[in-house]
Amino acid sequence: MTALGELRALSAPRGMQSAREKAARGRDNKAAAIFLAPWLIGLIGITLGPMLMSLYLAFTNYNLLQNPQFTGLENIQRMLGDERLGASLLVTAIYVLVSVPLQLAVALALAILLDRGVRGLPLYRSVFYLPSLLGASVAIAVLWRLVFGGQGLLNALLSLFGIQGPAWIAEPQTALGTLIVLHVWTFGSPMVIFLAGLRQIPRELYEAASTDGAGRWRQFRSITLPMLSPIIFFNLVLGLIGSFQTFTQAFIISNGTGGPADSTLFYSLYLYQEGFSSLRMGYASALAWLLLIIIAAFTAVNFWAAKYWVFYND
């Protein structure tokens, strides 16, 4: 049963499940209870409480310093007229739609290149992973300014070709672009997962295809892609969830402001500003649950679409 199948079954009316299916479903209940025990304890003891509390706070006025006051739908009403919310949604949407596919494409391309027995593979792999190791540290923030500033390295490079570049990181039109570059630059994480996935593909498949006279491209289309599809799917889903929540990079590059002129005001950054700088945690919680709904919708669409292209062994 695939994850997709589960979701499909979820949307199907209960009565439509066959008796056999029901019996099969309950077959491993005891074993599942044991295997899932840590997760269940964590869910009940640690995860669920804070989640439900934040859901409650979404309907309150909560300044962190005094008791939350229940205000009903006031936060939701405020959202409807909130211009910065719209701006942050737009920024985040552009970021997600551009940087996720771009990063995955780069990661996949390099993973395949590296998987094909390149000399010095461990070295390349380590080096490509470096940016992900560095994380979004203060040091990277300083460097990013030196590279993408008006008198930065990039412009020095461009001036060799007679091009005078703008202050990439400080112009409202280009600032978001530099953050997308920063994200793509950390392609090491999905690349490592792709590499691990590529290891799972039986070599015999390629050998057989080779003897059948299939070229590289055919092999990629008919073996690599389908066999890797669960991992691509995974990277896509998690990439979406992660990018929608992007915070640290935007925070360190703009020092928490989302500037210049709100051009890098990511959704999570706006939420953080509301919750912690402005001490409006009730509204921030409401924003968080709207984000959850958006991410969940995107994820559900992904699971739905997966049935057309994700191939499982089981």
Partner: peptide
């Protein structure tokens, strides 16, 4: 300097 030159330094620490 220009607006972007200023925005570039916006949020810098004292040392920068």
């Amino acid at each position: 300097g220009s607006a972007s030159e200023w925005a570039e330094g916006n949020g810098n620490t004292l040392d920068q």
